Amino acid sequence: PSLIGQHRGFFYGNSSGIDVDTNYLTGQSLVRKSPKVTSQVALSDAVLAGEFKFIYVYGTNPALTLPNQTAFRRGLVKNDVFMVVHDPHWNETIEFADVVLPATSYLEKEDIVVPWSHWHVRKSNRVIAPLGESKDEIEVMVGLAKRLNTGSEMVYEPPWEALEKAFDGALAKDTFQQLLDGNQVQMKYKPLDEYQTSSGKIEFVSESDGKKGSTDFPYFEPTKTGPDEYLLLNSAVREYTHTQFQDIVGPIPAIVWINPQDAEKNGINNNDEVFLANTLGKISASTQITDDVPVGVLWSPKQFPGKNGVPFNTVCPSTPQHLGGGPVFNSTVVRIESV
């Protein structure tokens, strides 16, 4: 947008535009030592390499979502790795856990969810009391801190007091008490003529990354495929949010779309079982022949759990993108093999 004179013109998220002090909530602003940060995309390699001996999982299902699943799962089953999963639903990651803790769902706890696509926020009230032995994340963390005799006061600060401090100056005209009383309030937004860059301006090339040889503008680098190789694309399907709701509507379907010309070339009919394979592993899927994908391209629903316990992300590489460090799920190259 900036190339044609648009001051603002695209949207990715507004987390950097609001003024909630998340560093205070995480405790980052109260400690001197910065925590170690590992790329989520490359986490499978780190786990396999033994970088983590204790893993605590909550709010995610990495045994389906992380790329390079073979490496991740091999790392989890090592004898010197201990994993705890804290979740309201039984999922694939729990199968690898040493301890499973039941978590409260959004219906069983009070919370404030800061929006990422608009500026209005309201307190989320609890509908029912926590069922069984389920506990929310804060209750578990405080309980662990007490067992470990952690003396830091920030760990034991009542959560709503911590939130009030973090929201200081973050609301446009309302008070935090009005938010607690159930009113819809509006967040204050940072000035639109300021940018979260080192120069405070729109930068077509990063001052820091530019020294590493980056070009002025992003460019498209086509994924290379060899003879009898295919580009495997994936995307979400409407019944699921990532891997959620499989316990309600059933597993994400293990299917693959294939162009009629590619199907004929490989002697494939509708609903045939095939393997999609590369150097990382192989997954099985049922074929659906369609003109909705071009020649040389396959498509599957993302993160399907797969047949025989081998998930889709087994064949996805764990190499982070050069720009931004994101995943390369849609740069996955596979061969088609007979079952």
Rank of each mutant, 00 (worst) to 15 (best):
Asn266Leu: 01
Ala129Ile: 07
Lys190Cys: 04
Gly9Thr: 08
Asp193Ala: 13
Ser300His: 00
Pro88Cys: 09
Leu180Ser: 04
Leu280Asn: 06
Val334Glu: 02
Glu337Met: 07
Gln6Trp: 12
Arg73Asp: 01
Pro115Asn: 06
Glu95Leu: 11
Pro88Thr: 13
Ser206Gly: 06
Thr175Trp: 05
Ser117Arg: 11
Glu264Tyr: 03
Glu161Cys: 01
Gln40Arg: 14
Glu95Lys: 13
Val99Met: 06
Glu137Met: 13
Ile255Lys: 01
Asn79Leu: 12
Asn278Leu: 13
Pro222Trp: 07
Asp216Ser: 14
Asn61Ser: 14
Lys78Asp: 04
Val310Gln: 04
Glu207Trp: 01
Val99Lys: 09
Val334Thr: 08
Ala129Gln: 15
Ser198Met: 09
Gly143His: 01
Asp272Cys: 09
Asn271Gly: 03
Val81His: 06
Tyr12Thr: 08
Ile258Tyr: 01
Met187Pro: 00
Met141Leu: 14
Pro102Met: 02
Cys316Met: 09
Phe96Thr: 08
Val249Pro: 03
Val334Ile: 07
Ser44Pro: 04
Gly200Cys: 02
Gly5Ala: 14
Asp111Ile: 11
Leu48Tyr: 05
Gly226Pro: 07
Ser15Pro: 01
Ser284Gly: 14
Ser338Trp: 04
Trp299Val: 07
Tyr189Asp: 03
Asn271Ile: 00
Val57Asn: 00
Thr70Ile: 10
Leu76Phe: 10
Ser214Ala: 09
Tyr106Asn: 10
Trp119Cys: 03
Asp111Glu: 15
Asn125Ala: 13
Phe329Asn: 12
Gln184His: 00
Val328Gly: 05
Val57Glu: 01
Leu232Ile: 02
Arg74Asn: 15
Gly143Ser: 09
Asp209Lys: 15
Ala172Asn: 14
Gly59Phe: 10
Arg73Cys: 02
Val31Ser: 12
Ala277Phe: 11
Val205Pro: 03
Ile248His: 05
Asp45Trp: 05
Lys33Thr: 14
Asn269Asp: 11
Leu25Ser: 14
Ala42His: 08
Ser16Asn: 11
Phe275Val: 04
Thr38Val: 15
Leu3Arg: 08
Phe167Lys: 03
Phe11Gln: 04
Glu337Thr: 03
Glu92Trp: 04
Gly267Leu: 14
Ser286Arg: 12
Val274Ile: 15
Phe220Leu: 12
Phe176Leu: 02
Leu231Cys: 05
His322Lys: 15
Asp272Lys: 04
Glu161Leu: 12
Gly27Cys: 11
Phe204Leu: 15
Val334Asp: 00
Ser338His: 07
Phe176Val: 04
Gly267Pro: 10
